[in-house]
């Protein structure tokens, strides 16, 4: 059974490309969200394995959404993404409860798979 993914980003162009890319590599994209509120609702309803979460959202920032999703150690695996570099965020990624960070330019199914395989 394919790994399910929820893509959260306010740019429709990025969501479309990311969906195409991940589906081409065997992921099952089960939903998309534009805002933090939509993201939290969709995660609750769809129960995806992975949430691909952009940092910059119109309402809340991605780290706060990640915290809420991973509270109590339950919930989906959160992968933070951004067009900025990882070094722009420092320890924010690990503190937010997210599994890891992938720059948008380097996004691929394999990159996500590698991140999932690294021990927590």
């Amino acid at each position: 059974m394919a790994t399910t993914v929820l893509i959260v980003d306010d740019h429709p162009g990025f969501r479309a490309t990311a969906r195409a890319l991940l589906e081409a590599e065997g992921f099952d994209v089960i939903g998309e969200a534009e805002t933090a509120v939509q993201a939290l609702q969709a995660a609750r309803e769809l129960q995806p394995d992975i949430v691909l979460l952009d940092v910059q959202l119109p309402d809340l920032d991605g780290f706060e959404v990640a915290e809420r999703l991973t509270v109590n150690g339950t919930g989906p695996t959160v992968v933070i993404t951004s067009s900025r570099d990882r070094t722009d965020f420092g320890p924010l990624v690990s503190r937010s409860g997210a599994r890891g960070f992938i720059p948008k330019g380097e996004l691929s199914g394999q990159a996500i798979a590698e991140l999932l395989e690294t021990p927590v």
Partner: peptide, 8 residues
């Protein structure tokens, strides 16, 4: 954003 999209 456009360059990210081009890359993907």
């Amino acid at each position: 954003q456009r360059l990210v999209a081009v890359s993907l």
